[in-house]
Design a protein around this nucleic acid. Structure first.
Lengths: 152, 152
DNA sequence: ATAATAAAGTCAGAGAAAGTCAAAGGTGAT
DNA sequence: ATCACCTTTGACTTTCTCTGACTTTATTAT
């Protein structure tokens, strides 16, 4: 059951694919196209095109205003994954880990199978014996260790 | 006299059969159909569609929310992996885990990359924050969960 | 300069869906 | 009749989405 936000997300991603990593949108125009309030575009951008997901957003208000969304470059998979590893820190929630994993999978830096394995390794079922206060720490260790293995 | 939970279980299993191993349900809708409280669906899922029984469950809350249930595939020659999963027990040493992983890789049931990921997930570096007395238990959970994901 | 207009941003509240948990209700074996 | 185990229920919580009123910033016309 794809919600409107999902549809808008897909639409923007297709635009980005077609334009080689960067797209400029008009918030009101896009909202008009999808028959929603303009602020929903902000919601989609905030939840789907944030930096955790590998996107960079700039905008300008006033006449001729616009929103520019850029996808981080994946020319150098090693650098990109290394960047993620470094950004993970000592702890990571399951939600945040999933986002990072989806991100590298979306960029085709890992296969679907690898994505599934990464997710299976760090979900709460795998970590059910670990005391809750330690889980996010263990999750970060596992994720970093596995990502590191991928680029080695 | 079949309890309602059994009826719901059968119903979901039939849906899974018809849709080739994976089904997406709407918790409230299903509860409405069976005239029960929504949380009964959670009960059925927790008791009948858990990983010990070869199912994987994911879900999303909020508008457009849903529950996805996947069943281990039966048409692939993965009996051996299931056998290993069942034989692992509550704990497994790193050494023993490595042997099992090598075995599965030798039989070409998983790729080299998958083998590396499995090993990376369960080594002592990944588990360095886990108290030593708990490590083999966590290792067993992670390994079983990942292997299960492979045969889904 | 100033005012009007044309964008985009913010934020809180309403709504939509699933999750949790403990208490109550059945059922079957001893 | 009791105990242990399974099932059912519902109140409360958490997460995700959508909306609209209000604010801020930039450009254009007077």
């Amino acid at each position: 059951m794809a919600r409107l936000s999902d549809i808008i997300e897909d639409f923007i991603k297709e635009m980005i694919d077609e334009t080689d990593g960067q797209v400029e949108i008009q918030r009101n125009e896009l909202a008009g196209y999808f028959n929603c309030v303009p602020s929903q575009i902000n919601y989609v951008i905030a939840t789907r095109f944030n930096s955790e997901r590998g996107y960079f957003v700039e905008s300008k208000r006033g006449g001729g205003g616009h929103i520019t969304i850029s996808r981080m470059s994946t020319d150098k998979p090693y650098d990109y994954i290394m960047h993620i590893i470094l950004s993970i820190g000592d702890e990571i929630s399951k939600h945040s880990a999933d986002i990072n994993i989806d991100n590298v999978a979306d960029l085709e830096l890992i296969s679907e199978e690898e994505k599934n394995l990464l997710k299976a390794a760090i979900n709460d079922n795998s970590l059910k014996s670990v005391p809750v206060f330690l889980r996010d720490k263990v999750r970060a260790d596992i994720l970093k260790n596995m990502l590191m293995k991928i680029i080695i």
